[in-house]
Design a protein around this nucleic acid. Structure first.
Lengths: 353, 353
DNA sequence: TGTTAGCACTCTAATAATTTGAGTGCTAAC
DNA sequence: GTTAGCACTCAAATTATTAGAGTGCTAACA
């Protein structure tokens, strides 16, 4: 596939660059004028070759050329100039320190959407491989027990359990001890029915209610309903003519609203990623049909060993890849820093005396 | 405004009904044929009158008539036939019993969007007037304290507080006692700095850390970030030609994604509501500019004394008002029942032995 | 052998011209 | 008060026309 001589590469690059900017099919004359001192006829010959090789196509006979998926791929892999590191690092934004992961993720995805002007999404760190750090149940009132679970990375999950009567103090203490000793360090996968019945036996309290509560705690941990995909800038699809006709925009925004399919697709991504953790899907590379006219770029972030999430954008194939990659790298590292790296600081602001 | 004789009312009703169904301006002939045995010429005369009175207009000289906002208003207030109660109650759906309010609301709003085919939203019960029911702090690890607050209606809020060192057991116990006795039954508005410093004094522990934790707990309670608007069916805007051109759809979906302006508008609604709790805003009735071509219908639900939220839909002015009102009433009551009324049942399902 | 000027040809997109038909308002008769 | 009839209007759909960007190919040139 690497049978392109230098001139063809230059021309291909010129075509793609130009198309990225204008969105119009680019003709031989444009290239001839602005990039090289070759006549348009010569360029035409080269273009014919590039078309035969599959890097570009004509939307119709008497039009200029636009890149194929393969053309984009070659551009991303070989031609694209990465942005200057120094410039990009400059933009160091401090995310508001917050006790809630959710809030942080929402901030990050908003920044991403703003910076890139593409629809952006972020998948919260998966709990599959995440470990239980702390469990606690308490009586809230006569009919409700609250169960709270803190996972590695300080993800908090909670659930209110409806019960017939409150647990007495002694049982409560026992159960809390039990829960912490048994569940600490386990992952979602480690928690199953036998473990629960095991704990029940250990508890030594033979009430129906104990089993119910234990089950609910297990449920609380395994429940991944609230570990979601956060999105921002869905309406950015309208910015790009190739995606903004009603039908396409509708499908895309819908996929963005549904989030389920998105989440699944992105989850797959996490596995495929290479050392940089960055993936570029062009057109049909991504498995979702509605996204055949889109490119998807994702970056996997890691908040601790095995605690991975994904951040990414969806936009037209005609995308400013360099800028997107730059932003993703940047946010990925800042996100990781915000959670892992930063020194402890006050959370409440200290403007009041 | 009530100077319409019966025949005019019938004709106006016919025009609006027809327009709701077809979306096309309706001409005199259509009315003459299907609704009354009057000639089209007679209908034309009446229409001219109705136009002069402001209930209908012609989009252009040689077109049929469409209702004005005033026409719709008259229809909603006086003409519209409410749906049969029996039929509507039939559709009694059980919402999955869940410990999480958030989940319940998401389910409800999804059902609403599905039933009506309009963009739907639900505003979580406001905490302003909601009371603290239970507070608890605990050491999660050496550097983190978890604060959990349960409000009336079992809304759970939590926050992880970063600290220099864990609180010793004794202090922890003391603080928990203190928090519960001091905060129980208070609303967000009741919680202020003097209360906090008061508590700090009572604690008798003169460490920096105590104040920090107390402040954070207060923050946890007052934080309304996660009491949000949930939406569903934003892409339904595309179903209605009058809203589906790029510009409008974009603005509307954007408003739906932003949620902030929505939330504010809806919050205002809560106050205006009459005994039924239902409000219909037609066109410019709603204060948001982007919604001038829309109607907004909202219902206020109440989960306990003073704990109010709002559920509503946004759609074209040409809307099936009867169906929407019916659905809102229905869901409002079911939502209230799901939280308040229903007898305690197992949360964990009992299919396993 | 690679490059280039030139020309006929193609096809889209924009503009203009034409047609169609639904609907009105008005008048005059019932 | 109601209605038939007719001239008139205007949006929307259809068709024709034009303009222009771009191509492929050929033949000449260095």
């Amino acid at each position: 596939m690497e049978q392109l001589d230098e001139r063809k590469e230059i021309i291909l690059n010129a075509i793609i660059q130009n198309y990225l900017e204008t969105g119009e099919p680019v003709g031989s004359r444009t290239i001839s004028k602005s990039y090289l001192n070759l006549s348009s006829a010569t360029i035409r010959n080269e273009m014919a070759d590039l078309e035969e090789l599959g890097y570009i196509v004509q939307p119709h006979t008497s039009a200029g050329r636009i890149p194929t998926d393969m053309g984009y791929r070659f551009y991303v892999d070989h031609l694209m100039a990465e942005k200057d590191k120094e410039v990009s690092q400059m933009q160091e934004l401090m995310f508001e320190k917050t006790g809630k992961m959710e809030k942080l993720l929402k901030q990050v995805v908003k920044v991403l959407a703003n910076n890139t002007q593409y629809a952006s999404m972020i998948l919260a760190p998966s709990v599959i491989s995440n470990k239980v750090k702390f469990v606690q149940i308490s009586n809230v009132d006569d009919n409700h027990v609250l169960s709270v679970v803190v996972m590695e990375g300080n993800l908090v999950k909670n659930r209110v359990i409806e019960v017939e009567k409150p647990l007495d103090n002694e049982t409560m203490l026992k159960l809390n001890m039990l829960l912490n000793t048994n569940l600490n360090g386990l992952t979602v996968n480690d928690i199953n029915l036998s473990l629960i019945s095991n704990m029940k036996d250990q508890a030594g309290v033979h009430e129906e209610i104990v089993e119910q509560v234990l089950k609910s705690v297990a449920d609380t941990i395994t429940d991944d309903e609230d570990l979601e995909v956060y999105t921002s800038g869905a309406t950015n699809f309208f910015k790009y003519p190739e995606l903004s006709d009603s039908e396409k925009a509708k499908d895309l925004i819908n996929a963005f609203e549904e989030k389920k399919p998105l989440a699944e697709f992105i989850q797959d991504v996490e596995n495929e990623s290479d050392e940089t953790g960055i993936q570029v899907y062009i057109g049909n590379d991504s498995s979702i049909k509605t996204m055949k006219d889109c490119s998807v770029v994702t970056a996997t972030y890691e908040l601790g060993e095995g605690v991975k999430g994904t951040i990414g954008i969806i936009g037209p194939k005609r995308m400013d890849y360099a800028n997107v990659l730059d932003n993703l790298k940047n946010l990925k590292s800042q996100l990781e820093k915000a959670v892992n790296g930063s020194p402890a600081t006050d959370i409440v602001d200290s403007d009041s005396s």
